[in-house]
Simulated scan of single mutants.
Amino acid sequence: MADGISSFWGPVTSTIECCEKNYAYSSYIAEFYNTISNIPSILLALIGLINALRQRFEKRFSVLHISNMTLAIGSMLYHATLQRMQQQSDETPMVWEMLLYMYILHSPDWHYRSTMPTFLFLYGAVFAVVHSVIRFGVGFKVHYVILCLLCVPRMYKYYIYTQDVSAKRLAKLYVATLVLGSFCWFCDRVFCKEISRWPINPQGHALWHVFMGFNSYFANTFLMFCRAQQRGWTPKIVHVLGVLPYVKIEKPKTQ
């Protein structure tokens, strides 16, 4: 989109721009709504992190929530500047996050405990280095979608083996926010010319950020519930102020 005010960060060097007018509100923020729409993701990840630490969940979940925050902050930097380097601070954490999800989903059945995390760590490190040199473009999106699809069968297995109604509702909310967010992202990318002529831009990419913030929170909470069941911690889904769900556990005294 064309610039509105002078640019503090200089010419756009990122390979992707969204359907939002650049520097419309501030010379320091290229895409205002796409930047601030990451705030809910940070707050939700912080809530998840506090719950994981307070109830002494395994460290993997603390790392997962921190990963969500890192991704949201990277996205803020990218949309605020529209610079190639900051674009990597958005895209690389996306891949790291999916590798972490793969570890959490598959680790209970992994026979050699050090092999899987070592492989995933090396894969993430190599990707970060290669991605800093090569502009993948469409290749990045294909790669990311493949990583997401690799998680789907395992996530579905967790769903069908979970009997708790509240936990199943979390999984359904995860799917619903993913579908709604993807729809907003698709419309913003494909129908930008038409949307730009509307009196008000619905900011589809910003809505994608908000939906995906809740999507990550619901996914994390569902996985925490499933893991607590595996460990025999008698988990149950409770709600903050009757609205936001989280997992409450009761560990055996021997643990």
Rank of each mutant, 00 (worst) to 15 (best):
W9K: 09
P11E: 10
T13Y: 07
S14P: 10
T15I: 07
I16C: 00
I16P: 00
I16T: 10
C18G: 02
K21S: 03
K21D: 02
N22D: 15
A24I: 05
Y25H: 15
S26V: 05
S26E: 11
Y28R: 13
Y33F: 15
N34F: 02
I39H: 06
P40N: 03
I42L: 12
A45F: 13
L46A: 09
L46D: 03
N51M: 10
L53W: 03
L53E: 11
R54F: 04
F57A: 04
F57L: 01
E58C: 06
F61V: 11
S62I: 01
S62H: 05
L64Q: 07
H65S: 01
S67K: 05
L71S: 04
I73L: 15
I73E: 06
Y78D: 00
Y78G: 01
Y78W: 15
H79D: 07
H79Q: 07
A80E: 02
T81F: 08
L82Y: 04
Q87T: 02
Q88F: 02
D90V: 08
D90Q: 05
P93G: 10
P93R: 01
W96R: 05
L100H: 15
L100R: 02
M102R: 04
I104Y: 00
D109I: 12
R113K: 15
S114L: 15
T115A: 15
T115C: 11
P117V: 13
L120I: 05
F121I: 11
L122E: 01
A125F: 14
V126T: 14
F127A: 02
F127Y: 15
F127W: 02
A128M: 09
V129G: 00
H131C: 03
S132W: 02
V133M: 04
V133K: 00
I134L: 12
R135K: 07
G137W: 02
G137R: 02
V145E: 11
